[in-house]
Design a protein around this nucleic acid. Structure first.
Length: 798
RNA sequence: GCAGGUGUGGCGAAAUUGGCAGACGCGCUAGACUUAGGAUCUAGUGGAGUAAUCCAUGGGGGUUCAAGUCCCUUCACCUGCACCA
């Protein structure tokens, strides 16, 4: 009788004691770096979703090791962030304490599943030894001019009392608490990510990311090309600059719009006759949250600016200027030219305000809607007769000659707002001195650690909790020695996770964040697995971070991640996302207790396509347990013959090939079913040899490592972890006798067994002789005969 | 609205990339063994039909000797982004 709890503990101890999974820097073996996204150590413990991706990559890591690779498969914790802070506030503990407890739980859970992580490299992003380097890197970015402070309208969550990045406030809703987000002006640390838009785009060529991942990055960066066009203003000696992707439609411009935040409203408040009305509109727009602005996008609002008139630089025509919140202050120049005939939003606005609509491209019906397609230009002077592409080229050339416009590229991606008014994050190592302004901390004073204080609740005015701690705030200016104040904002959660994969390459380095030698040895993350939800922003932040380090000469490659893959979610048995409120959460501990870690691992690999969502099914899990029990029972069939059983050699070679390919390429479910087929075959035999049995154990070991080691030991072999992965012989993956389908007019009429090397004519002859085929050939005329050796015979008749 | 994805038995899913649709597993049905079974074993299991055979991969059309797979069109659902000029 086998006791899985005892056996699993036994092997986990052996692996740990013998440091079987330790990665060695500078080994002679070929290196392979497999990375899984490290978890946020929440209070609810490990999720079955973690188990899915960690098991999958674990299987790959285990196979790669047996294939002779020096595999780096590390684990750590992304431990800064609001949930730990909030939980700590609620339970009156220090967040560090909370993190420590949760990390312990997570580690224990992961060890009980038998993941082959190199635990010696583990760390948490909230360890001072780690965040020292996050801070150090920030200082380098500051010194190279990539970090700056700016007053920006930021997304403000009234509930969390904190500023959110555009990403965290997607859709105008706070990602954490779901509150509606407001806009507020705040002085924030920013990273000049927009400087790297083009590099981040081009860098994708140096990666092997899946297409859907690349596309996510491309969309996020949001490159567009067009023109910047300058309009004169009639009443004042000034110009209004707009950005447009359709300069070819300039003859159809009938009005201009600027955003409520546009500087001209302040600058020309004395010229604007209806400034009161406009100020009122501005105030309303500010009050509207992002959410309302988007939700109410059907109805356009705005005010005509009395006293300012724009002049079309091409036609010299005068036209009104409006202020409207459908124009964003943060994109382009915060001003647009209104071409209602050929832009949907302009069309709506023009209809509402009764503005002229001039068609300049043929092809649509502008009495009904704006026509945004391509076509022949009309009413456009020298552009008449040209299509979109040609007229864009033509008009830009013309504008450049007339000096009223120029070719321009824009990106949706904005600079990264890097400040959080939170306690539980890396303190930003900057000091404000009344004389010297912002001064970076001396590097030798790092880490700047979080103070050990009992209170760190957010302040009412939105300042960081650190601002209320004088011991932290007050300091001396590193430059002049005068009394100075520390920055009290902390870094966002994304900071620590933007470079953790570099630290894993050299986790104990006290002199550098990671040595160049170590990073050169590992070269890149070969294989990075994570959630679909992180393929856009986390990946982009990490790539940006690395590219800055590269510019500083601190990493060997501009892209440090080669392949990125993502996994599907595990849903509850009700096909809904698992959540406490729905009561459909599965705790991996319960499964391990009742069925064992091997069963849990096997089931999660077998449950479906790894890249797709899959619902939890307890019966299916039991089926996997049954399979393991059956493999254990096969032990009783082992005879004392040498070598492999002749009847199963082909199947064995096929199985090795299939499992090997599947584990390399996310085909975990089919790897398992292939192994089930082999086990079923063994079951049919009266007896099997030790080698037969051992092969099955070896192939199954990466997915279910505990019991396979145990059974292998019972056979008297050396441990599987110390054994080379079996090799298959391509020539032996095909049976001598193959089954061929015979069709008449594409319909199956017979199957025949023939020698695999049979020649075409012979094959056709045998096919035609089949009784049932004869029946369908009778009284017909053969039109065509298709013979594909090894596959199919199809006879077409009339 | 835009982008991406998915749609195959009662369920999770396979399908060598254009070549026998439903591998493997769950569930179900019948039987065996058992004091008992929610344990185990054996057989069956897409639908219709006694059968030969016919029908079947969201719907419709097409290409091809051959389509789940390629093309066109349409519907449904999921995930991002969302007034980005």
């Amino acid at each position: 009788m086998y006791d899985f709890k005892k056996i699993e503990k036994k092997w986990q101890k052996i692996w740990e004691d013998k440091e079987v999974f330790k990665a060695v820097n500078n080994s002679d073996k070929p290196h392979y770096y497999i990375l899984v996204e490290f978890p946020y150590p929440s209070g609810s413990g490990l999720h079955v979703g973690h188990v899915r991706s960690y098991t999958a990559q674990d299987a790959k890591a285990r196979m790669k090791r047996m294939q002779g690779y020096n595999v780096l498969y590390p684990m750590g914790y992304d431990s800064f962030g609001a949930p730990a802070e909030q939980y700590a506030i609620k339970t009156h503990q220090h967040p560090a304490k909370v993190v420590e407890q949760n990390v312990e739980t997570f580690s224990k859970q992961m060890k009980s599943i038998g993941f082959s992580f190199d635990w010696s490299r583990a760390f948490s992003t909230s360890d001072p030894e780690y965040y020292k380097w996050t801070q150090w890197q920030f200082l380098q970015f500051y010194k190279m001019g990539m970090a700056y402070k700016a007053d920006v309208p930021v997304n403000w969550c009234p509930t969390c009392k904190t500023v959110l990045s555009n990403e965290d406030a997607a859709g105008g809703v706070c990602e954490r608490c779901g509150s509606s987000v407001e806009l507020r002006e705040k002085s924030q640390w920013m990273l000049k990510m927009s400087d790297y838009a083009e590099d981040l785009l081009n860098g994708l060529e140096d990666t092997n990311f899946a297409d859907r991942v690349k596309l996510g990055q491309i969309n996020w960066i949001g490159k567009s090309t067009g023109a910047s066009v300058v309009f004169n203003i009639k009443e004042v000696d000034d110009t209004l600059e707009v950005y447009t992707t359709r300069p070819d439609t300039i003859f159809g411009t009938t009005y201009m719009v600027i955003s409520p935040e546009h500087e001209y409203l302040e600058k020309y408040k004395d010229v604007i006759k209806n400034i009161k009305e406009i100020n009122k509109y501005q105030a309303e727009a500010r009050k509207k949250s992002e959410l309302e602005r988007t939700e109410l996008n059907k109805e356009k609002t705005g005010v005509k600016i009395e006293g300012l008139t724009a002049i079309n630089p091409i036609t010299e025509k005068e036209m009104p200027i409006f202020v409207s919140d459908y124009v964003l202050s943060t994109y382009g120049t915060g001003a647009v030219m209104g071409v209602p005939a050929h832009d949907t939003r302009d069309y709506e606005f023009a209809k509402k305000f009764g503005l002229d609509i001039i068609e300049v491209i043929e092809g649509g019906d502008i009495s009904k809607e704006a026509y945004t397609g391509d076509g022949v230009h009309v009413n456009s002077d020298f552009l008449n007769g040209l299509n979109k592409e040609d007229s864009i080229k033509e008009i830009i050339e013309y504008m450049e000659k007339k000096k009223c416009g120029t070719k321009k590229t824009n990106y949706k991606m904005r600079d990264w707002i890097f400040s959080r008014q939170r306690f539980w994050g890396e303190p930003i190592p900057m000091i404000y001195c009344d004389k010297c302004g912002w001064v970076p901390m001396n590097e030798e004073d790092l880490p700047l650690v979080l103070p050990d204080v009992p209170n760190y609740e957010p302040t009412e005015n939105g300042e960081s909790p650190l601002a209320a701690i004088p011991e932290f705030v007050n300091c001396k200016c590193p430059k002049c020695g005068a009394d100075a104040r520390r920055e009290t904002d902390t870094m966002p959660n994304w900071a620590g996770s933007s470079w953790y994969f570099l630290r894993f390459m050299d986790a104990h380095n006290t002199q550098e964040f990671a040595s160049m030698d170590a990073m050169k040895y590992w070269d890149k993350v070969d294989w990075y697995n994570g959630g679909m939800e992180h393929t856009a922003r986390h990946l982009l932040y990490a790539r940006f971070w690395v590219q800055m380090l590269y510019k500083l000469g601190l990493v060997p490659n501009k892209e440090m991640i080669w392949t990125r893959v993502s996994h599907g979610m595990i849903l509850g048995s009700d096909n809904q996302k698992m959540s406490k409120s729905k009561g459909n959460v599965i705790n991996p501990d319960d499964i391990i207790n009742e069925y064992g870690a091997d069963t849990l691992r096997l089931y999660e690999m077998f449950m479906g396509d790894y890249q797709m969502d899959a619902p939890w099914n307890i019966d299916s899990l039991k089926g996997c347990k049954r399979f393991i029990d059956r493999v254990i029972k096969l032990f009783d069939k082992v005879n004392d013959k040498e070598g492999f059983t002749k009847d199963v050699v082909v199947l064995q070679n096929q199985t090795i090939k299939k499992v090997q390919n599947d584990l390399s390429d996310l085909g975990f479910n089919t790897a398992v079913s292939t192994l089930m087929i082999l086990a079923n075959k063994y079951d049919e035999l009266d007896s099997i040899t030790k080698d037969d049995y051992r092969l099955l154990l070896q192939l199954l070991n990466p997915i279910a490592p505990h019991f396979t080691e145990e059974m292998n030991e019972k056979l008297g072999f050396e441990p599987l972890y110390a054994t080379a992965w079996p090799e298959y012989d391509e020539a032996k993956t095909v049976e001598n006798e193959v089954t061929i389908a015979v069709q008449v007019n594409g319909k199956l009429r017979a199957t025949i067994k023939v020698d695999k090397d049979i020649d075409k004519d012979e094959l056709l002859k045998i096919a035609k002789n089949e009784e049932n085929v004869q029946k369908f050939l009778a009284d017909t005329e053969i039109v065509k005969e298709i013979v594909i050796p090894g596959r199919i015979v199809n006879i077409v008749v009339k």
